[in-house]
Design a protein around this nucleic acid. Structure first.
Lengths: 233, 233
DNA sequence: TGCGCTCTTTGCGCCAACTCAAACAACAGA
DNA sequence: TCTGTTGTTTGAGTTGGCGCAAAGAGCGCA
């Protein structure tokens, strides 16, 4: 195992305000690992024995129901914690984590949690804040699914993706990991057909550009108008 | 302020395994209050300055969007914590809490949180477990809204309500607080019209009995068959 | 006892989004 | 270079659930 350097994580919001000593303490308990594209880093309902910090790449958090239908709960970006079941007192993971591209992450064994939080309380509060944000986002999603049409939901989702995981290009902002129409459908509670039709229409209007597993938002402003436009009620 | 007795809360799962001394410590920092029906105990986006434990009654947790459309996130039952924004490092409440009936609750000022958790760590982990459960439930709801028809969602919601807040009667299990068709619609992402039609149909089939702001499930078994019955795909 | 308010029921027409179907395009591996 | 696999597009037909409308019923309050 290579020794891990504090500079790996010192810049992340989660670790801001920590001393070098504290960073070292956290890092010396972690191991760093590579996860190739499409690998399941952990599986839904599997025994939760570790928690993670994504250093590089993108991770898809997926839930399956008993009929095999799948929903994408969120994507994890570099600098974010994931798999922190231990912080919620859970024994199993509530969802699967799949590497959307080749990833690098730090992993801590759950047994280290009491020590880490005792010694670096800011780490614990960062984790709890993360959970709070996820709860908030998930409740926002419920609200959107209750009150918005499919068109608005897809537009909102695209805008969120480019905002959180966008990469500037000559043509606009591109979602910087491969994402299929099916994936977008599973994030918004619709079908790939409907997503494809919407993207085609938006491409004709010059709002987005598409490609196989690629989406570029070329006119975020007008896409936002679509996202905010209410038709229901 | 009346002095609070340990027996008030000793029986609750959240406090199991605590010593009398710990219970007293928690209670002496809390104040007990009555909240009449329809009162907002706290408001969405309001400054979070306290957290609560419901002793008696039922509380509706409601989120409003910028268009004034409202969604019911959950109902709180006796023995549950609510308004625990402080545990997630939040400065404001993400939703409003409305007393569905006359309620009694304990309230702790947020300033007491560090002391309480330091002195009674089980209390903190109980709070984090609660948050984890709510996140899980909210994600389940997203999954249901993505994969189930309205009929299944309403059936699931009724079953959950009678399971969590049911009261046995001669005819079946009654949801033991007033709940309108509109409320059920706001929990399931549909309209009161559709809920009314479904309940009428189920009443004809002998599965439920209704009334103004009342729902009694008379045949949970067959209602469960409806809830599990998949039509999509 | 009656009035007004809130909640519930039911009918009707419509359309957003779904299912089904089929062809096409891009990429990976042999 | 070919071939199989995976992802995308588009058309056609269907329908679940919504919007609109109006009447009915239960409850609180004067």
């Amino acid at each position: 195992m290579p020794e891990l350097d504090g500079s790996l994580i010192a810049g992340l919001p989660l670790f801001s305000g920590m001393s070098k000593k504290e960073l070292d303490f956290l890092l010396c308990r972690a191991r760093s690992a590579r996860y190739p594209k499409d690998l399941a880093i952990f599986e839904q309902d599997g025994n939760a024995d570790a928690f993670f910090l994504l250093l590089d790449g993108h991770i898809r958090v997926v839930r399956l129901n008993e009929d095999g239908e799948q929903v994408i709960a969120r994507y994890i970006n570099p600098g974010e914690l994931f798999g922190i079941a231990v912080a919620m007192g859970r024994a199993t993971y509530p969802a699967s984590a799949i590497a959307a591209v080749d990833c690098v992450a730090l992993a801590w064994p759950n047994e280290a949690w009491p020590d880490l939080t005792a010694r670096v309380p800011q780490f614990a509060s960062g984790a709890y804040r993360t959970i709070g944000e996820r709860l908030q986002e998930t409740q926002d999603q419920v609200m959107q699914m209750s009150t918005e049409q499919v068109e608005q939901r897809v537009a909102h989702t695209l805008l969120r993706l480019v905002q959180q995981s966008g990469r500037k290009t000559a043509e606009g902002i591109e979602i910087d990991f491969p994402i299929t129409r099916q994936d977008i459908a599973e994030m918004t509670g619709t079908t790939l057909h409907t997503v494809s039709r919407l993207l085609s229409a938006w491409e004709d209007m010059g709002l987005v550009r598409g490609g196989r597993q690629r989406v570029i938002v070329t006119d975020a402003h007008n896409l936002m108008l679509i996202a905010e436009h209410r038709r229901k009620r």
